[in-house]
Design a protein around this nucleic acid. Structure first.
Lengths: 174, 174
DNA sequence: GGCTAATCAGTAGTAACAAC
DNA sequence: GTTGTTACTACTGATTAGCC
């Protein structure tokens, strides 16, 4: 069924399907609401599917290198990294978000993976009497927890398409 | 090797590039963290970034408990609550501001994201009551024992790492 | 100074895809 | 089925603008 949130479409934000919503475009003239809206608005670039970016090795290298330095870059840095890698800023942001989550998840449980349900949410915290950082003005949060030397999976899946981006030209011109 | 003397430029970055660990960002440049950040930011710029506080359960309990009593405490009360929780006054203030806004927003519409469908808008329900306290509250000195229902989400995210800040004795004197 | 309303941005959870 | 990773969403802390 095709009842999706047309608001996103109108807003031009992500124009993304809600969870579980599918397009059954059986033949080639079966329009869902979004397609209909597309016709109306003309420009509403709807995506039928979620596009899963496949990072190239060089992109991953750059991202990981930056992640070591700063796992939580601000907007400007994000844009710069996006520029370097040729990725969009949004994709770069998502990668950093996921990487932070990954780091959290893997920190402390790097056992040789059995298939067990490793639910190491590190709950505890029943009583550590607060003391959250009260840095209000300007400071760097500091990498949370043990920042190991990056041994997360992070595999590259042999990108099918080759990207030719100026990966090295605008780097450091001193 | 990256022997730069401006380590104080980066305050408290925990991610170690210890033992002279460099990393290559591009084809032939090896940079350490300090050099890298300087190149990126032009110079020793203390990065202004939002630090998102993660409240501990006890802190949240205290805040919520007080919110029930008085959702708009004045400066003195704010400071007192800040003392109790170990948070800064500013953070406490912001929490109350956001909580008031949350209450307004959520009053009457409980939006659960479990499986689509329920767009429940027929609200009222600015009530509290009920909810035999599940919030574990321990060892907060002077905290009121009555912590009672909160109809907003307000989840606690159990910060995994204990941040030791030496703020046990530098409370705000009054 | 304080407040509200709007906005920005980060985290946790989860679904969607891909490979094993 | 499981594991890994990208993308998305909901919630919420922090900031800003405007007002009193």
């Amino acid at each position: 069924m095709c009842s999706l949130s047309s608001i996103n479409c109108i807003k031009g934000l992500g124009s993304q399907l809600s969870t579980g919503e599918e397009f059954s475009l059986t033949d080639n003239r079966l329009l869902c609401k979004q397609h209909y809206l597309e016709l109306i608005h003309g420009q509403c670039k709807a995506k039928t599917k979620r596009v899963r970016t496949t990072f190239a090795e060089e992109q991953l290298s750059v991202l990981q290198a930056h992640f070591q330095i700063d796992s939580n870059p601000d907007g400007a840095d994000l844009e710069k990294i996006a520029n370097i890698t040729g990725l969009s800023k949004r994709v770069t942001q998502v990668w950093f978000q996921n990487s932070r989550a990954r780091q959290k998840k893997y920190q402390g449980s790097k056992k040789s993976r059995a298939s067990g349900g490793g639910n190491d949410r590190s709950g505890s915290a029943t009583n550590n009497s607060g003391r959250s950082s009260t840095t209000t003005m300007e400071s760097i949060p500091g990498s949370p927890g043990c920042d190991d030397g990056m041994m997360f999976p992070t595999s590259v899946t042999t990108s099918a398409d080759d990207i030719d981006k100026p990966m090295d030209s605008m780097m450091f011109s001193e």
